[in-house]
Design a protein around this nucleic acid. Structure first.
Length: 641
RNA sequence: GCCGGUGUAGCUCAGCUGGCAGAGCGAUUCCUUCGUAAGGAAUAGGCCGAGGGUUCAAAUCCCUCCACCGGCUCCA
């Protein structure tokens, strides 16, 4: 028998017999490790401990101390659920049940479940944990497996796809329950110390809307009860940052039932939006954009040549209707209007790039179940812009936009992720054009040294896209800014410029949004800051708290010295403690407490929302600092830092 | 759109085995004039999401719709 070599996590190499399993490798490292082995990671793939290793593989042994252990445990959690389900609802058909980042789900069918059923199934799960059933891997021949799943077309489908070519087929058994599964799993159902079924939802088989609707049950599992409790508490705490809750508390916006998906900005929210707008206007100007404005209401004909009409009406996503025998629509995008302005005149190569920006309000008829506060709306305003450029200007243009986005997002301290989205099924234009455009975006990302992921087939219909994603309070990713390169719309609209050679040439369009939409950006921002906005954005920047009513006049004088800030005076006859508490609740960045001492010295006592304080501060000292803090767009309140 | 859940005062929520619509916070008025996270009292505030049905009687039971929340699909 010949030896093979495997590489351990510390970089060292170990020689083992050919045909050795993960567990064998663990035992040859040490008997204790061998006994503790739950699973293995071979070249990054989590596998059963009975899996054979191969020459040159990087191997990690998974024990109950490993990061991967939780994934294994949750995979077993999914089986625990499935076994309990089959005991209580034998008619239910199982499909797939993987682990996820924070738990597991199992998609089932031929059974109707509601919340009460989940509680009932949970008690059966508890009984199975109590039974402490061994979880064992075994094999069936392909033929036996197909036979076993005679009545389950989903499992048979898996045998024909994921498990195609496998023979024998890997199964797992615990008590009377058997499931097609490549593993790995924990040793026994008793290892699952804490679990909970969290939610129930509809899901489509293989994620395709055209396929059967399945019932998906979400759950989570932990080695013990206290870790489960911790998880549930973290989940509750995340809800405290929900932008809808903070939006109500701070009176920023509302989305009334009379306009589903169409936020109304209240004065406080509009103050913040206007600050964002002003900032983006500056950025657009320095990027060379000229601001335009185009109407929301247009004839549907506008979007027919560009392809928008076919794309958006096919999914019922466009608001359009017939009036006076003419079809009208609300614009779902601004490109067609901007292209129109470009196309009105003959353009010279000397004029390019020509860049139009617009805070363009667009409407999309998103499915009702999709709407989600400010993060997913039907009426939204994009900080949109289109640059019409020559081919030789592509690289420079994209790089400039990426650098601007990087600078802008630096003022918000977001964790963000770049994603390159490539040609999809709905693409218009030739593959060559797409390939060229995609490469241009890739080159720009790489020349900027930006890390990015690639999402194949996810681009908009007219061109590949760089998406900039941010994360909300409960970990969902949302695209905010985008940069898209488009060779197609110029072609379809026959846009031209006159080149140096006095011939007509085709410009390239760059579609870009820096923040994306004000709605989504504000939603993400509210959750990111938990309502504690940087000074420049805070609806109320300073609140003056007089100790007694006798100090009101001095409070007015201080407010006057801070004339170009958003300052309020707390004039209710409350105790000082109450006034401070209220200001904290309102997340006001700075409180200035003024009493007789301050009045006598011409000073203020500064307290910030982080509970730091300093007495006897001359008003000018405070003002000079906060002017800088505001104008330089500091992320945190830092006068008392 | 699909599956599950939720709609009661400005906000957070109780009431829901049918029998006069409640609390706390907030608001208003009065008292208090206070030194760094809740001073006191009184008052006002509701088509119990909308429509239909069952019943002597519906916030409560049934049906339909609307909106919202989580998830699926989709997307900035």
């Amino acid at each position: 028998m010949s030896d093979i070599t495997v590489e351990l996590p510390d970089g060292s190499e170990l020689s083992v017999d050919e045909g050795a399993t993960v567990e064998d490798v663990a035992y040859s490292i040490g008997p204790g490790l061998g006994r503790d082995t739950v699973a293995g990671v071979l070249d990054g793939d989590l596998v059963d401990k009975a899996s054979p290793v191969y020459d040159g593989v990087r191997i990690e042994i998974v024990t109950d101390q490993s990061d991967e252990y939780l994934d294994v445990l949750r995979h077993s959690g999914a089986h625990l659920f499935a076994q309990a389900l089959q005991r209580r609802h034998p008619e239910a058909k199982l499909t797939i049940g993987p682990w996820t980042d924070d738990g597991f789900y199992y998609d089932v069918t031929n059974v109707d479940l509601d919340e009460a059923d989940l509680r009932d199934i949970e008690s059966e799960m508890a009984a199975i944990v109590e039974e402490d059933l061994d979880i064992e891997r075994f094999e069936r021949s392909r033929e036996e497996a197909l036979d076993f799943y005679e009545d389950n077309e989903f499992k048979r489908d898996i045998l024909e796809t994921e498990a195609a070519g496998d023979d024998p087929i890997s199964f797992y058994r615990q008590g009377e329950f058997e499931d097609l599964c490549k593993g790995p799993h924990v040793e026994s159902t008793g290892d699952i110390g804490g679990f909970k079924l969290l939610d129930i939802s509809a899901a489509y088989w293989r994620g395709d809307e055209e396929n059967e609707t399945l019932t998906r049950v979400y759950g989570t599992a932990f080695p013990n009860e206290s870790q489960l409790e911790e998880f549930l508490e973290r989940r509750e705490a995340a809800k405290e940052r929900d932008h809808r809750k903070i939006g109500r508390e701070m009176d920023l916006f509302s989305i009334p039932a009379h306009s589903p998906g169409c936020p109304h900005y209240h004065p406080n929210g509009m103050t913040m939006r206007r600050e964002l707008e002003d900032y983006i206007r500056e950025q657009n100007e320095s990027l060379g954009y000229e601001e335009v404005w185009t109407p929301e209401l247009n004839k549907a004909d506008l979007w027919k040549p560009t392809g928008h009409y076919d794309n958006f009406t096919a999914e019922g996503e466009m608001f359009n209707w017939e009036q006076d025998d003419t079809e009208y629509g609300l614009k779902p995008m601004n490109c067609a209007n901007h292209a129109y302005i470009y196309g009105r005149e003959k353009r010279s190569y000397r004029d390019l790039p020509i860049r139009f920006s617009e805070f363009g309000t667009v409407y999309r008829n998103e499915q009702s179940g999709e709407l989600s506060g400010l993060l997913r709306v039907r009426g939204m305003t994009q900080d949109d812009g289109h640059a019409f450029i020559r081919k030789d200007q592509i690289q420079g243009e994209i790089v400039d936009v990426l650098e601007a986005i990087d600078e802008i997002l630096g003022h918000f301290d977001f964790e963000m992720e770049y994603v390159l989205e490539t040609q999809g099924d709905n693409a218009v234009g030739s593959d060559d054009i797409w390939a060229e455009a995609t490469e241009s975006l890739r080159d720009a990302l790489e020349s900027e040294g930006l890390e990015y992921e690639v999402d194949e087939g996810e681009a908009a219909f007219y061109g590949p896209k760089i998406g900039i994603n941010a994360v909300d309070a409960i970990g969902r990713e949302w695209t905010i800014g985008t940069v898209q390169l488009d060779f197609n719309i110029p072609e379809r609209l026959d846009l031209t410029y006159i080149g140096e050679d006095n011939d007509e040439h085709r410009p390239v369009m760059v579609h870009r949004a820096l923040l994306g939409t004000f709605e989504r950006f504000m939603g993400v921002m509210i959750e990111h800051f938990n309502g504690k906005f940087p000074l420049w954005l805070a609806p109320e920047q300073v609140r003056i708290l007089p100790i007694t009513d006798d100090n009101l006049e001095y409070a007015e004088a201080v407010a006057a010295e801070l004339g170009d800030f958003r300052v309020e005076i707390e004039d209710r006859s409350w105790t000082v403690g109450k006034k401070i508490q209220q200001a904290h609740d309102d997340r006001v960045p700075y409180m200035l407490v003024v009493g007789d001492n301050e009045e006598a010295d011409g000073t203020v006592s500064v307290r910030d929302r982080e509970e730091r304080e300093r007495q006897d501060v001359p008003v000018e000292t405070f003002r000079d600092h906060v002017e800088r803090e505001r104008d330089e767009k500091h992320v945190t309140v830092d006068f008392l830092k």
